[in-house]
Amino acid sequence: MFRALQFTFGAAIVIFLLMPIFAILPLAFTSSVFLNYPIPAYSMRWMHELTTADVWRTSIVNSLIIGGGATVFATVLGTLASLGMRKGALPMVGLLRTLFLLPMVVPAVVLGVGMQIFLVRLGLASTYLGVIIAHAVLCIPFVIVSVSAALQGIDPSIERAASSLGAPPVTVFRRVTLPLAIPGVVSGAIFAFATSLDEVVLTLFVAGPNQRTLARQMFSSIRENINPTVAAAALLLIIGTLCLGGLAALLRWRQKRSALETAPSAI
C-alpha cells in the first residue's frame, strides 16, 4: 500500500517536471502560425524557419560562439583555480572556494547589473568578448566543482612516485596529474557549455543586438512576434542539452569503472 503511494507520488513529480517540455515539443511540428493546440497538421515549416531565417540562424551561431568561448575561458580558469586550491598551501582555502562558487547562488540579475557597469567601463559592453566573460563567470563554478572532485580522486603518492622517478613538477602535471584529471575537466566543460547555452538574464544585460544568443532570441520572440519557431528552438535546445547530459553521464560512468578497476586487489 505504502509502496504504491510512493510510486504514484514519484510518478506525479516526474510528470510535473516533464510536462512543460512535452507540452511545447509537438508545437515545433505544427503547420499553424499560432503557438497553441490543437495542431491542425504536422509540418516542418517552423524547423525550416529556424534554420533559414536570419535572426534565428545568427542567434544559433552566436550561441555556439559565446558558449564555446565561455567554455574555454571557464575551463582553463576553473581548472587552474582547482589546482591552486588543491594542495592546501593557500591560507583560507575554504573561503576562497566559497567565493569561487558564489556565482552559482548570487541572483543572475545582480550579476547582470554589476557586469554591465563593469563591462561598460572596460569598453567591452555589447561585444562578443564581454558576453563571453560574463558567461564564463557563471560557468566557472561548474568547472571547479567537477575538476576539484577529479583531483581529489588522485592518490598523492602517484604524483610523488613520478617526482621521485625524476619528473620535474611541470612534467608530473603534464604526464600524470592532467591525464588523470581529464575526465573531470571534460565534464566540467560540458556543464559550462550547457550553462552558457540557456543563459538569458546575464545576456539581456551585457549583450548588444549583435550578440543575441538562441535563448535570448527566444525570449524576445515571445514578446514581439510569437510563432511556433520558439517551439522549434526549444526542441533544438533540449536535444543539445540531452546530448551534453548524455556525454557527461557516459564520462562519469567510464570514470567510475576505471576507479573500480584501480582499487588494488590483493591476491
Binding site: 603518492s157 602517484i158 621521485s164
Partner: peptide, 20 residues
C-alpha cells in the same frame, strides 16, 4: 634538493603505479 634531482627509487605501500 627536490625529489626529482635525488636519484632515489621509492616504493610506496599502495604501489603508486600510474593507472593510465
Amino acid at each position: 634538493l627536490p625529489p626529482y634531482r635525488r636519484q632515489m627509487g621509492v616504493v610506496f605501500q599502495n604501489y603508486a603505479l600510474f593507472p593510465h
